[in-house]
């Protein structure tokens, strides 16, 4: 009787345990930036472990690797990176941990069609690495990451493929909600400036372009003469709104506002806060809302001026 009971218990355990657990240990997938945490968690669900390479609360732009990062890196099976900017620290950590070439590195942007930073003072076409501050370019990256993970973890490939489709559909529906709000606005000549070149992919979703970028380079403060040129450009081109970074007040934005009277609105770079499965959705939703609100406001002001 006891034997039958034990056999039944073993069979029950085999039935309820997840497939991934049967075929060995779960993959430990490292990520470098917040959006990639959300992307990977939504692809793998509970079939793999997602590990941020660096802790919360650090600015990835000027991050210096810590001993704990190197230790963490040594436990990873694969690393997912942006690869074209923002996570240069990943290469340093891989080298320091002697893991370079020993674990696969998924370059999320390898197949993304890149666009230039628009509105630069000198008009030069510089590659824009902020592909994760958008829905469409993020979807492309989600497919790339998913495909690579399916190859590395074939036992869970079907699950990853289905999760990817669901997540992509969810993101697209979220974007459609906001596109719906501006569906009835007639072709509006909306002119905006941004604090840095981080929002071109987002604006492209709406068929918009940035008229002027204030920082001469990402993270570089403009000099007095550059600021004067930007103010002149904002006046000359009739810029209505400046989108600045959320939680990063800058004196020169106040100067621009005082000099030109242009409205100031906030967008998020999506690379701060806690690493959560829905942090990308929350961040991009806030950005879509800010942009749609600014468009509606610009339209209403034009209507008020016309009447």
């Amino acid at each position: 009787m006891i034997r039958i009971y034990l056999l039944a218990m073993v069979l029950l355990c085999m039935l309820v345990s997840p497939a991934g657990a049967d075929s060995g240990k779960r993959l430990r997938i490292g990520i470098t930036l917040h959006p990639y945490y959300s992307f990977v968690v939504n692809i793998v669900g509970d079939r793999a472990e997602v590990v941020p390479l660096i802790g919360e609360g650090f600015n990835p732009h000027n991050y210096r690797p810590q001993p704990a990062d190197i230790k963490r890196c040594m436990t990873l099976d694969v690393l997912v990176v942006n690869g074209i900017g923002h996570d240069e620290f990943a290469t340093e950590i891989l080298r320091a941990a002697n893991m370079e070439g020993r674990i696969p590195v998924i370059q999320s942007n390898k197949d993304v069609s890149l666009i230039p930073v628009s509105g630069t003072l000198d008009g030069k076409k510089i590659v824009n690495p902020h592909t994760f501050v958008s829905v469409t370019a993020s979807i492309q990256q989600i497919y790339t990451i998913s495909k690579e993970l399916q190859k590395l973890d074939p036992d869970n490939a079907q699950e990853y493929r289905e999760n990817t489709r669901k997540y992509v559909r969810k993101l697209r529906r979220m974007k459609a909600e906001y596109m719906q709000r501006v569906a009835d606005l007639p072709g509006l000549d909306f002119r905006c400036a941004t604090i840095h070149g981080g929002y071109d992919y987002l604006l492209q979703e709406f068929g918009l372009q940035v008229t002027a970028v204030i920082e001469p380079g990402h993270g570089l403060k403009p000099s007095a003469s550059q600021l004067a040129k930007t103010i002149e450009k904002i006046r000359k081109l009739g810029v209505e709104v400046v989108f600045t970074e959320m939680n990063f007040p800058d004196k020169y934005v106040d100067t621009i506002h005082a000099e030109t009277g242009v409205r100031i609105r906030h967008l998020s770079h999506l690379t701060s806060g806690a690493y959560t499965a829905d942090s990308f959705e929350k961040g991009i939703r806030a950005n879509l809302k800010a942009l749609v609100d600014a468009l509606i406001e610009a339209y209403q002001l034009r209507q008020g001026e016309a009447s």
């Binding site: 690869g83 370059q107 942007n109 390898k110 890149l114 592909t131």
Partner: peptide, 8 residues
């Protein structure tokens, strides 16, 4: 396109 792999 100019892809991420080209930029890398």
């Amino acid at each position: 396109p100019l892809r991420g792999r080209d930029e890398i």
